[in-house]
Nucleic acid binder design. Sequence first.
DNA 1: GCCGTTTTCGGCCCGACTGTTTTCAGTCG
Length: 574
Amino acid sequence: MRNEDVAAVFYEIADILELQGIAFKPQAYRRAASAIEQLDVEIASAVASGTHREIPGVGEAIAKKIEELVRTGSLDYLERLRAETPPGLLEIMSVPDIGPKTAMILVHDLGVSSLGELKEAALAGKVKKLKGFGERTEERILSGIKTLESKGRRAFLGEALPVARAYVEYLMGRIRLDLIDVCGSLRRGKETIGDMDILVGWDNAPAVTDAFTQYERVDEVIVSGATKTSVRLAGGFQADLRIVERSSYGAALQYFTGSKEHNVLIRKMGIEKGLKVNEYGVFERDSNRKLAGDTEDGVYEALGLPWIPPELREDAGEIDAALRGALPTLLEPSDVKGDLHVHSEWSDGADSIDDIVSAAAAKGHKFVAITDHTQSLSIANGLSPEKVLAQIEAVRKAEERSEGGVRAFAGSEVDILADGSLDLPPSVLRELDVVIASVHSRLKMEPKEMTARLVAAIESGEIDIVGHPTGRIIGRRDPASIDLEKVFESARENGVMMEINAFPDRLDLRDAHCRMAKDNGVMMTIGTDAHSLRHLDYLEFGIITARRGWLEKSDVLNTLDPAKVEKKLRGRRA
DNA sequence: GCCGTTTTCGGCCCGACTGTTTTCAGTCG
């Protein structure tokens, strides 16, 4: 069982307990689930060493359940909970505005047992006749079901960020705003986004609300009050606007950035210090005197903490680290000097090497690596050994022709074949400046086999980087079953690096795995996996992922000057 | 179910908005 699988079990338990009207336990299970998700070791090895009991939020009862999950792959307790849950309840609770109480009434008093039946009942006007229900509630339920049907998956960070930035730009064009930020999971850089939160500090709330709801991409205004408005954008994406007085802006920014779990800890710290923390500021409980609120820095300072970067605010040990003065100095976008994974028209990319080098120069890169696919990936027009050698010459010439002073590395994204061997002979690999090795086939191997396959590639001594190490595609393909700690150990011993693939639907390694790699002493690289020039912009998402993985400048190869990058890469042949 | 410079028992973050209400519960973030 992977950490995500164990977390999913506890999230489901929390949902069912909540449905049963049980208080506090759901939070306890959610806290444990979230901690396990963020864990920087494999849960199985934590159990093996007995350290799973030390995970925050994991006590005696949950520890036992983790052991059972790791040992048997399933959990009796969850099976029992499922069995006693009326069918359709969880599904019905997933409708916006239907929580545990409402869902229970619908199932019991109306006798519906699926979303479809609920919709039918609402359309037939049966819902509004229930005690405590009315016309508006029935409409809301129908609209909620419609939302659910049209919404589909969460958006990738790479999709949502440009939409949010366009919205902010529009608002700033309508009204002169100096205090406006995107907050929520977007500001924290989560890999997928449920909805976007925009915060505005201004004294004329109605004008901002009007501008917000009049945006051309707004399909529907869901709620609109004095300080809070929610709309649905074309395509089903929800956007929330909060307006606060300027003097509360920092507190609101902190509050609406979240995560919820991080904020709960912040407020508990406040309580211990006799303070009340809300979106308006930090107040003394007794006198209600305001201690902070206009800046986010000030809020943390009032609690005796340094400012914590949004990407770390996940209740993953950041508050502890802050108290100890041990927060990492995170990688900054300006630290990153180039892109280490780009495809050209030689394989399945859209652009010429010349155009890629020029585009990299225009973006201010100091280097770019051309890394096309190899022969066995015929679907992507993979290159034969002869073509690889020819391409090396082509890259050298493109670099000479270029005017931006960009160093162009001749590389390859060589396939790791099923037996762990590489898709190009050593004689060719040794001519290359950079060798990324990736798995593109037979992704569903058994964990032992897949781990051995990656370790064999790492131990070959012919590669620099493992590309998109888990092979996951967010929302579509699960990560391969791999013992990542074994892979990282082998990588450290052999001086091989792990890629953060910045493509929006990959982000692989993901945040928690970056942290795991770092803890295992492995160096990381960032590559866009660009297949066209506009994909070169994806570098940002790799940087955000690195930050969420607690990575510092010194953990990432891309922060070095070209000469030093080259020296490090040449190291594999020494 | 977890947790402890106030606690090993008794707490557990905080406020906006809505709808169906005569004063508040449910939901959300």
